[in-house]
């Protein structure tokens, strides 16, 4: 096994584990807003590590360029979608469960 293969396999394994962990969090978290945090693990850490692992596997080819484009696409669109989700939920009156109760703290 070449060193590049070892690196790429480690990245793929770490990415797969963080994807599964994110999905477990999606099931375990108590309310909608905390679930979004779990989903963002899949969107950023899981996706980033798996794409990075595939890039190492592909080397310097057009395939890597396409993987970079997919990565940038996910990195630019996923926060926009999350933000839209959170705003829509708040606008429809879905109150987040807060640890300290009541109003947002003002620093």
């Amino acid at each position: 096994m070449s060193p590049a293969d070892a690196i790429s396999w480690a990245l793929l394994a770490a990415g797969g584990v963080s994807c599964v962990l994110g999905a477990v969090g999606l099931l375990r978290m108590p309310d909608f807003f905390t679930r979004m945090h779990a989903a963002s693990v899949v969107d950023t850490v899981g996706a980033g590590l798996i794409l990075l692992g595939l890039m190492v596997q592909a080397g310097l080819t057009l395939v890597t360029v396409k993987l970079v484009v997919i990565g940038l696409l996910i990195f630019f669109t996923s926060p926009t979608a999350s933000h839209a989700l959170a705003r829509a939920a708040l606008a429809r009156g879905l109150e987040p469960k807060l640890a300290d109760g009541g109003a947002p703290s003002k620093p």
Partner: peptide
Amino acid sequence: FDRALAANTVGTVAVLLLAV
């Protein structure tokens, strides 16, 4: 919104699955 969030995550995972 939970369903929409799950659908969004399914989309991301599908993209990764296609890449793999």
